[in-house]
Protein backbone atom coordinates (compact mmCIF):
# COMPACT_ATOMS: atom_id res chain seq x y z
CA UNK A 1 0.00 0.00 0.00
CA UNK A 2 1.19 3.44 -0.93
CA UNK A 3 0.30 6.50 1.08
CA UNK A 4 1.60 9.98 0.38
CA UNK A 5 0.79 12.89 2.59
CA UNK A 6 1.45 16.54 1.81
CA UNK A 7 4.35 15.58 -0.40
CA UNK A 8 6.54 18.50 -1.44
CA UNK A 9 9.63 18.57 -3.53
CA UNK A 10 11.71 21.65 -4.11
CA UNK A 11 14.78 21.78 -6.29
CA UNK A 12 17.37 24.36 -5.36
CA UNK A 13 19.77 25.61 -7.95
CA UNK A 14 22.00 28.24 -6.40
CA UNK A 15 19.76 30.79 -4.72
CA UNK A 16 16.70 29.83 -6.73
CA UNK A 17 14.31 27.37 -5.15
CA UNK A 18 11.89 25.79 -7.58
CA UNK A 19 8.93 23.97 -6.03
CA UNK A 20 7.95 21.04 -8.23
CA UNK A 21 5.50 19.19 -6.04
CA UNK A 22 3.30 21.35 -3.84
CA UNK A 23 1.57 19.23 -1.27
CA UNK A 24 0.33 16.01 -2.80
CA UNK A 25 -1.69 13.44 -0.93
CA UNK A 26 -3.22 10.20 -2.12
CA UNK A 27 -3.37 6.56 -1.34
CA UNK A 28 -3.00 3.60 -3.65
CA UNK A 29 -4.18 0.24 -2.41
CA UNK A 30 -2.69 -3.07 -3.27
CA UNK A 31 -3.87 -4.40 -6.60
CA UNK A 32 -4.90 -1.05 -7.98
CA UNK A 33 -4.19 0.03 -11.56
CA UNK A 34 -3.52 3.76 -11.44
CA UNK A 35 -2.47 6.22 -14.13
CA UNK A 36 -0.65 9.38 -13.11
CA UNK A 37 -1.25 11.92 -15.79
CA UNK A 38 0.06 15.31 -16.60
CA UNK A 39 1.84 17.26 -19.28
CA UNK A 40 5.60 17.68 -19.08
CA UNK A 41 6.76 20.04 -16.35
CA UNK A 42 3.88 19.21 -14.05
CA UNK A 43 6.05 17.22 -11.68
CA UNK A 44 4.90 13.79 -12.73
CA UNK A 45 8.47 12.52 -13.31
CA UNK A 46 9.46 13.85 -9.92
CA UNK A 47 6.49 12.13 -8.34
CA UNK A 48 7.37 8.91 -10.15
CA UNK A 49 10.99 9.11 -8.91
CA UNK A 50 9.77 9.54 -5.35
CA UNK A 51 7.22 6.73 -5.65
CA UNK A 52 10.00 4.58 -7.15
CA UNK A 53 12.28 5.33 -4.18
CA UNK A 54 14.84 6.90 -6.50
CA UNK A 55 14.38 10.27 -4.86
CA UNK A 56 13.19 11.58 -1.52
CA UNK A 57 10.56 14.25 -0.84
CA UNK A 58 11.66 17.59 0.60
CA UNK A 59 8.81 17.53 3.07
CA UNK A 60 5.78 15.38 3.59
CA UNK A 61 5.52 11.66 4.08
CA UNK A 62 5.72 8.72 1.77
CA UNK A 63 4.70 5.45 3.36
CA UNK A 64 5.36 2.29 1.39
CA UNK A 65 3.89 -0.61 3.31
CA UNK A 66 4.29 1.37 6.51
CA UNK A 67 7.93 2.15 5.79
CA UNK A 68 8.69 5.87 5.90
CA UNK A 69 10.72 6.14 2.71
CA UNK A 70 11.85 9.69 3.49
CA UNK A 71 13.83 8.47 6.50
CA UNK A 72 15.84 5.83 4.67
CA UNK A 73 19.47 6.16 3.57
CA UNK A 74 20.72 5.48 0.08
CA UNK A 75 21.55 1.80 0.67
CA UNK A 76 18.18 1.14 2.25
CA UNK A 77 16.47 2.80 -0.73
CA UNK A 78 18.40 0.56 -3.14
CA UNK A 79 17.34 -2.39 -1.11
CA UNK A 80 13.72 -1.30 -1.13
CA UNK A 81 13.71 -0.74 -4.92
CA UNK A 82 15.17 -4.16 -5.45
CA UNK A 83 12.56 -5.80 -3.31
CA UNK A 84 9.36 -3.92 -3.94
CA UNK A 85 9.51 -2.02 -7.20
CA UNK A 86 9.69 -3.10 -10.81
CA UNK A 87 10.56 -0.34 -13.24
CA UNK A 88 9.48 -0.11 -16.87
CA UNK A 89 10.96 2.84 -18.78
CA UNK A 90 10.02 4.56 -21.99
CA UNK A 91 13.48 3.83 -23.44
CA UNK A 92 13.50 0.23 -22.13
CA UNK A 93 17.06 0.60 -20.75
CA UNK A 94 18.19 -2.90 -21.60
CA UNK A 95 21.88 -3.85 -21.51
CA UNK A 96 22.65 -3.77 -25.23
CA UNK A 97 25.28 -6.49 -25.22
CA UNK A 98 23.43 -8.93 -23.01
CA UNK A 99 20.83 -11.52 -23.94
CA UNK A 100 17.18 -11.26 -22.96
CA UNK A 101 17.90 -13.87 -20.31
CA UNK A 102 20.71 -11.84 -18.73
CA UNK A 103 18.66 -8.67 -18.90
CA UNK A 104 15.72 -10.28 -17.20
CA UNK A 105 17.81 -11.70 -14.37
CA UNK A 106 19.71 -8.45 -13.73
CA UNK A 107 17.75 -7.45 -10.59
CA UNK A 108 18.59 -10.82 -9.04
CA UNK A 109 22.28 -9.80 -8.92
CA UNK A 110 21.38 -7.44 -6.12
CA UNK A 111 19.06 -9.57 -4.01
CA UNK A 112 20.22 -10.74 -0.60
CA UNK A 113 19.52 -14.38 -1.14
CA UNK A 114 20.11 -15.59 -4.64
CA UNK A 115 17.38 -18.00 -5.63
CA UNK A 116 18.41 -21.43 -6.82
CA UNK A 117 16.03 -21.68 -9.75
CA UNK A 118 16.99 -18.46 -11.51
CA UNK A 119 16.56 -19.98 -14.94
CA UNK A 120 13.08 -21.14 -14.20
CA UNK A 121 12.17 -17.76 -12.79
CA UNK A 122 13.49 -16.04 -15.89
CA UNK A 123 11.63 -18.45 -18.13
CA UNK A 124 8.45 -17.82 -16.22
CA UNK A 125 8.90 -14.06 -16.50
CA UNK A 126 9.64 -14.30 -20.21
CA UNK A 127 6.63 -16.58 -20.67
CA UNK A 128 4.45 -13.99 -18.95
CA UNK A 129 5.38 -11.47 -21.65
CA UNK A 130 5.18 -14.05 -24.45
CA UNK A 131 8.89 -14.20 -25.26
CA UNK A 132 9.81 -17.74 -24.28
CA UNK A 133 11.50 -18.30 -27.64
CA UNK A 134 13.62 -15.13 -27.46
CA UNK A 135 15.70 -16.01 -24.40
CA UNK A 136 19.08 -15.80 -26.12
CA UNK A 137 18.32 -12.78 -28.28
CA UNK A 138 20.11 -9.51 -27.73
CA UNK A 139 18.15 -6.23 -27.72
CA UNK A 140 19.31 -5.32 -31.24
CA UNK A 141 17.80 -8.56 -32.50
CA UNK A 142 14.40 -7.69 -31.05
CA UNK A 143 11.71 -5.24 -32.12
CA UNK A 144 10.85 -2.27 -29.92
CA UNK A 145 7.75 -4.00 -28.58
CA UNK A 146 9.71 -7.11 -27.80
CA UNK A 147 12.41 -5.08 -26.06
CA UNK A 148 9.80 -3.44 -23.88
CA UNK A 149 8.38 -6.85 -23.06
CA UNK A 150 11.85 -8.02 -22.00
CA UNK A 151 11.98 -4.94 -19.78
CA UNK A 152 8.61 -5.88 -18.26
CA UNK A 153 9.88 -9.41 -17.64
CA UNK A 154 12.87 -7.84 -15.87
CA UNK A 155 10.49 -5.83 -13.70
CA UNK A 156 8.58 -9.02 -12.86
CA UNK A 157 11.52 -11.22 -11.94
CA UNK A 158 11.68 -10.19 -8.28
CA UNK A 159 7.88 -10.40 -7.98
CA UNK A 160 7.63 -6.79 -6.79
CA UNK A 161 4.55 -5.31 -5.20
CA UNK A 162 4.51 -2.32 -7.48
CA UNK A 163 5.19 -2.06 -11.16
CA UNK A 164 6.08 1.50 -12.03
CA UNK A 165 5.81 2.18 -15.75
CA UNK A 166 6.99 5.51 -17.13
CA UNK A 167 5.49 6.15 -20.56
CA UNK A 168 5.86 2.47 -21.42
CA UNK A 169 4.33 2.88 -24.86
CA UNK A 170 6.01 6.21 -25.66
CA UNK A 171 8.61 4.72 -27.96
CA UNK A 172 6.36 2.12 -29.57
CA UNK A 173 4.00 1.98 -32.50
CA UNK A 174 0.27 1.59 -31.87
CA UNK A 175 0.12 -2.17 -32.11
CA UNK A 176 3.21 -2.85 -29.98
CA UNK A 177 1.89 -0.32 -27.49
CA UNK A 178 -1.40 -2.16 -27.23
CA UNK A 179 0.45 -5.45 -26.77
CA UNK A 180 2.37 -3.92 -23.87
CA UNK A 181 -0.87 -2.57 -22.38
CA UNK A 182 -2.38 -6.02 -22.76
CA UNK A 183 0.43 -7.41 -20.61
CA UNK A 184 -0.23 -4.78 -17.96
CA UNK A 185 -3.89 -5.68 -18.01
CA UNK A 186 -3.03 -9.31 -17.44
CA UNK A 187 -0.59 -8.46 -14.65
CA UNK A 188 -3.26 -6.37 -13.00
CA UNK A 189 -5.68 -9.23 -13.21
CA UNK A 190 -3.05 -11.37 -11.50
CA UNK A 191 -3.04 -8.93 -8.59
CA UNK A 192 -0.04 -6.68 -9.25
CA UNK A 193 -0.24 -3.02 -8.31
CA UNK A 194 0.46 -0.99 -11.43
CA UNK A 195 1.28 2.68 -11.59
CA UNK A 196 1.33 4.09 -15.08
CA UNK A 197 2.91 7.47 -15.63
CA UNK A 198 1.89 9.11 -18.87
CA UNK A 199 0.97 12.33 -20.55
CA UNK A 200 -1.39 10.54 -22.89
CA UNK A 201 -5.06 10.44 -21.97
CA UNK A 202 -5.63 7.47 -24.26
CA UNK A 203 -2.93 5.44 -22.52
CA UNK A 204 -4.16 6.49 -19.08
CA UNK A 205 -7.61 5.19 -19.85
CA UNK A 206 -6.35 1.63 -19.65
CA UNK A 207 -6.15 2.10 -15.87
CA UNK A 208 -8.91 1.95 -13.32
CA UNK A 209 -8.09 5.28 -11.82
CA UNK A 210 -6.53 8.49 -13.03
CA UNK A 211 -4.63 11.01 -10.93
CA UNK A 212 -4.07 14.23 -12.87
CA UNK A 213 -1.22 16.52 -11.92
CA UNK A 214 -1.03 20.12 -12.87
CA UNK A 215 1.60 22.56 -11.74
CA UNK A 216 2.71 20.32 -8.89
CA UNK A 217 -0.75 19.71 -7.52
CA UNK A 218 -3.46 17.13 -8.00
CA UNK A 219 -6.34 18.55 -9.96
CA UNK A 220 -8.25 15.38 -10.52
CA UNK A 221 -8.40 11.94 -8.89
CA UNK A 222 -11.17 9.84 -10.35
CA UNK A 223 -12.13 6.31 -11.24
CA UNK A 224 -12.60 5.43 -14.87
CA UNK A 225 -16.00 4.09 -15.62
CA UNK A 226 -15.12 2.39 -18.83
CA UNK A 227 -11.55 1.09 -19.07
CA UNK A 228 -10.03 0.63 -22.50
CA UNK A 229 -9.44 -3.00 -23.32
CA UNK A 230 -6.22 -3.47 -25.32
CA UNK A 231 -7.14 -7.02 -26.27
CA UNK A 232 -10.35 -5.87 -27.83
CA UNK A 233 -8.55 -3.18 -29.79
CA UNK A 234 -5.96 -5.63 -31.00
CA UNK A 235 -8.88 -7.61 -32.40
CA UNK A 236 -7.80 -10.82 -30.82
CA UNK A 237 -9.73 -10.67 -27.60
CA UNK A 238 -10.88 -14.17 -28.25
CA UNK A 239 -7.52 -15.95 -28.48
CA UNK A 240 -5.68 -13.79 -26.02
CA UNK A 241 -6.92 -13.91 -22.53
Amino acid sequence: MIEVEQLEKTYSTGRMATPVLKGISFRINEGEYVAIMGTSGTGKSTLMNILGCLDKPTTGRYLLDDTDVGSLDDDALSHLRNKKIGFVFQQFHLLERSTAMRNVTLPLIYVDEYPEDVEKMAEKALAAVGLTDRRQYRPNELSGGQQQRVAIARALITDPEIILADEPTGALDRKSGLEVMSIFKKLHQQGHTIILVTHDQAVAEHAQRIIVLKDGQITEDRLIKKQRDPDLELGNGEEKR
Binding site: D74, H79, K83, F87, H93, L106, P107, I109, Y110, T158
Partner: peptide, 9 residues
Protein backbone atom coordinates in the same frame (compact mmCIF):
# COMPACT_ATOMS: atom_id res chain seq x y z
CA UNK B 1 19.38 1.05 -14.42
CA UNK B 2 21.48 -1.07 -12.08
CA UNK B 3 20.84 1.44 -9.33
CA UNK B 4 17.11 1.39 -10.12
CA UNK B 5 16.89 -2.38 -9.87
CA UNK B 6 18.66 -2.40 -6.51
CA UNK B 7 22.42 -1.85 -6.84
CA UNK B 8 23.86 0.25 -4.04
CA UNK B 9 26.61 2.82 -4.61
Amino acid sequence: LRRAVGATR
